[in-house]
């Protein structure tokens, strides 16, 4: 729901635009199950300006800072928080909890009446009038 809200808000700068894709960054520790998310996304976007958009989920692995190795290391899973190179346990998390909207891909309406029909154009007129009050 907050995804739809955020995307809808950001569309204010692009009147009449349609959303083709919503891209998320989701860390391995973010407790997000993609299948449920896809299912809910379809329902949550219904009737909103985001309806019909694709949801792309970019999964990010956990990255820890390993002090003995002196560098950031990537984990293959979330079952053991150890440096895969030296085997030492590490809890200095540098990546893995992300849960954010990275970007959206939109089709912008033509500025000069390219596609005058449809709800997008109507909304544009409405907001212009309101602004003029």
């Amino acid at each position: 729901m907050s995804i739809v809200e955020t995307v809808t808000e950001s569309l204010a700068a692009y009147p009449g635009a349609t959303v083709k894709e919503v891209r998320l960054r989701v860390g391995a520790l973010a407790a997000v199950e993609e299948e449920s998310l896809q299912f809910c996304f379809g329902m949550a976007t219904e009737g909103s300006p985001v309806a019909g958009a694709r949801l792309v989920v970019n999964r990010l692995p956990v990255i820890l800072h390993c002090a003995p190795c002196g560098k950031d290391v990537e984990l293959a899973g979330v079952q053991s928080f150890r440096c895969p190179e030296c085997g030492v346990q590490a809890s200095d998390l540098r990546q893995g909890r992300e849960l954010e909207i990275e970007a959206i891909e939109i089709d912008e309406a033509e500025p000069n009446g390219g596609e005058p029909s449809g709800a997008g154009a109507a909304m544009q007129t409405g907001s212009a009038q309101e602004a003029g009050k």
Binding site: S2, Y14, L99, I101, E102, E105, E108, A109
Partner: peptide, 13 residues
């Protein structure tokens, strides 16, 4: 019609 990528980088929570 032009396609554009809008960077948001906004936490969902």
């Amino acid at each position: 019609m032009t396609t554009r990528i809008v960077e948001l980088r906004r936490g969902i929570l």
